[in-house]
Design a binder for these strands. Structure first.
Lengths: 351, 351
DNA sequence: AAATGAATTGTCAACGCTGTCAATCGGTGC
DNA sequence: GCACCGATTGACAGCGTTGACAATTCATTT
């Protein structure tokens, strides 16, 4: 009494595909992994069988049997605006290589951080890890990953390490370019709102600003450079300090859009006409940049592309005899300056 | 010539733990999986060995051998603001049960959506899937998951299905409550900006608004109810239509904060004093709500808690003989009305 | 003290795939 | 025609864990 061959929905295994194609399981495996040394005709036959049976290799089995896990980790701390864009880019790149992304929130200040990282990489056997700031700057995380021999890509790290790749944008050049736009419009006294101390972006954006000022022979008044922390609330204080200066600036460069929005609020409260009496620019092209009036001129971050690039670095990484390939891959993605209503010519008669 | 017992960093296997504890591998497995039928003393001994060797069970092996995969999927389409918060909540809940979250962006309009879903669930053998809107409303996704017997949790679905659990917030009650605040402050003519047609939130928020109006015997002027789509740009148009009405309202209820921010912009352009001449409220407590002046009164969504709840539903789900447990779990999380500067008493002499 | 049965523990064979290495195939050169 | 060599392909043994079921232990009962 044998069952008729019901077209059961049981997941096809590699054995079944092999039978269908008239080859061994190993050969099917070779095709799946795109190994060389399979005759074209054989490969085609296997592909057809895979297609016909709608076969999907089992990740767990592949991970157990082979050296790979097909898993990449994305470790982050603050789920900011940009995380979802970034991860979407990373997943897209992963898909192209049949990898999967495991997102893992971590707390940078956690005393057990090392243990948490260690647990993750050993349980999952990650093939690589993408570290978003501020995790990209923690030595203990770097060390744990390095010790386990897991390639890590650091996103916008404060301190570049020579032994690990990173994805960066040239914030400095973009900040300089945006500052140029202000100077070209006649602004001479320009305030600057710094981001959180210790972030690479904080440093680079200020340097770009200073580059432009110096290139035009303009002085930076220290009183007009105030420390913020990338957050709106702190930005309010920061903007107040700048705008209550006896000699008020005609423009403000905020290190990100949230603080730029804060400057807009403060200006409004002080009844400063925008943009006639004060130009304000931000950075990031966050959603808020277009949700206020006037809309902020800013710099668009190619966040999704950065996600792609990060995943790509891990995927491209072929283990060498020792360490990473030389030279260290370190893609720089282009930023785009976006001019909107918040920028205008300096008021006539300004210093 | 035998090597000295270097404290090698080789991953400890279950066998090694078993040896250390003086039991069989199977017993260690029992302890790991928290099965009953292990003597307390034995369990303690195994735990000690696990601790000592810093053993981490291999996910792939567990997935291959057992019925479980320890993987939950989070499928989303638009990476909005709230995704990262939501997923962080979901991951936190997963960690408590040693599960992992795989995030997978999908395109609702993709003709191959079914195939994409099918590939994912078979490759990964997901134990469950969380569907964010608008994916939570696509019949083909539901069907594919149901056919594969994979529990799915639907977040804020438009149409509740009786055969699947969902996580909802009571938008209607919160909208009513927020509207009450306006009415209590003397507002009688209130405009309403609708969200995107077909979303549950759009419907529920309007119904809550209508509930409050009717409860107070107030009429809703159809001209003051305009269709938006949750986006800022469209919100501008929408607000313009409402505010250019011959009999201008004294308050506007926007279905989300982005549109609320748009109303603020338009009011400013029309030189309407905020909040003296016009109160504006939003919904979601998005970042923008506190980045504009005046700050928007709104309703805070417990996004992270929703993520937790969604993961919890999957984890709690114990396969029954047939279908899901009765009654269908459907947690409703409490929303919080937040009053900020954008709400004020209706101008004296208003209708 | 032997029998009983529930609680506890162990044995062993998968799970679906890949790594290793051996076997086979086809074409060359002499 | 035969030894030889590179290109293909296959056989087989795990990878680290769990499921099914057998074995053992131990407190009770007769």
């Amino acid at each position: 009494m044998r069952r008729p061959p019901v077209p059961t929905r049981e997941a096809a295994t590699i054995e079944i595909v092999a039978e269908q194609a008239g080859v061994s399981a190993k050969t099917v495996s070779r095709v799946i992994n795109n190994e060389r040394g399979v005759r074209t005709e054989t490969r085609a036959r296997v592909m057809a069988a895979i297609e016909k049976l709608d076969y999907q290799p089992n990740l767990a089995a592949r991970g157990l049997a082979g050296a790979r896990s097909f898993l990449i980790g994305l470790f982050y701390d603050n789920p900011g605006d940009y995380l979802s864009e970034f991860q979407t880019g990373a997943v897209q790149r992963c898909r192209e290589s049949n990898l999967h992304l495991m997102v893992e929130p971590l707390v940078a200040a956690d005393p057990d951080l090392t243990r948490a990282v260690s647990t993750l990489i050993r349980q999952l056997r990650l093939e690589g890890v993408i570290l978003l700031p501020p995790l990209s700057d923690l030595p203990e995380v770097r060390a744990t990953l390095a010790e386990a021999g897991i390639p890590a890509v650091h996103i916008a790290p404060m301190h570049r390490q020579d032994d690990s790749p990173s994805v960066d944008t040239d914030d400095r050049a973009a900040a300089r370019q945006l500052t140029d736009e202000l100077i070209e419009r006649g602004h001479r006294r320009i305030g600057f709102m710094l981001g959180r101390a210790g972030h690479r972006a904080t440093e680079q954006r200020y340097l770009g600003f200073a580059d432009a000022m110096h290139a035009h022979g303009l002085a930076i008044d220290p009183k007009l450079v105030q420390t913020g922390n990338f957050e709106f609330a702190e930005g309010l204080e920061c903007a107040r300090r700048i705008l209550s200066s006896p000699e008020r600036p005609t423009a403000i460069f905020a290190s990100n859009d949230d603080m730029g929005a804060a400057a807009v609020c403060v200006a409004r409260q002080m009844e400063i006409a925008l943009p006639q009496q004060l130009s304000i620019v931000g950075f990031d092209d966050a959603p808020v940049a277009t949700m206020i009036w006037p809309q902020l001129s800013t710099v668009r971050q190619p966040v999704r592309s950065m996600g792609r690039a990060a995943a790509d670095l891990i995927i491209q990484h072929k283990p060498h005899r020792r360490g990473w390939p030389q030279p260290m891959p370190r893609p720089h993605l282009d930023l785009e300056v976006i001019l909107r209503g918040s920028i205008a010519a300096a008021p006539v008669g300004a210093a």
